[in-house]
Nucleic acid binder design. Structure first.
Length: 123
DNA sequence: TTGATGACCTGAG
DNA sequence: ACTCAGGCCATCA
């Protein structure tokens, strides 16, 4: 049992989750954009934060706590990973979640990526 | 403290 | 347009 899966959160997790919660349904953000929003270039470390997400939509029904990590995609417009995997059933679930929110996904790519991408403006 | 690990990014071919 | 080796950084054992 890793402590990051229980209650403690690292400083980076707190910052990233807070930002991510402001991304509305129907839009997406990227690991890179999240990094920019917190003044960092720790792309891979942010991937870690997503992997360690304690409150993903599918297993948390408390709105104030839920972290929409399925809305985080790769900066090149491809889907990226989900639940520790980069392919397979987990990715299909991420895609269907995005589609249900109105985000088009074809062949592992976000459609109209430029407009679907949510930009953090308060910098 | 050192080395290992990833839901990444970038540049070169 | 696609692949891939290298680079990066916070975290963890």
């Amino acid at each position: 049992m890793r402590y990051t899966e229980s209650t403690f959160m690292t400083p980076l997790q707190k910052q990233i989750y807070a930002r991510l919660k402001t991304v509305p349904a129907g839009r997406v953000t990227t690991y890179k954009e999240l990094a920019r929003a917190v003044g960092s270039t720790a792309y891979r470390a942010i991937g870690q934060c997503m992997r360690n997400n304690p409150y993903p939509y599918m297993s948390c029904d408390i709105p104030s706590l839920r972290v929409p990590c399925h809305r985080v995609v790769a900066s090149n417009g491809t889907i990226g990973g989900f639940m520790g995997k980069t392919a397979g059933a987990e990715i299909e679930q991420k895609i269907s979640m995005l589609k249900s929110e109105g985000v088009g996904v074809v062949d592992n790519r976000i459609q109209k990526f430029k407009t679907a991408l949510y930009i953090f403006s308060d910098l």
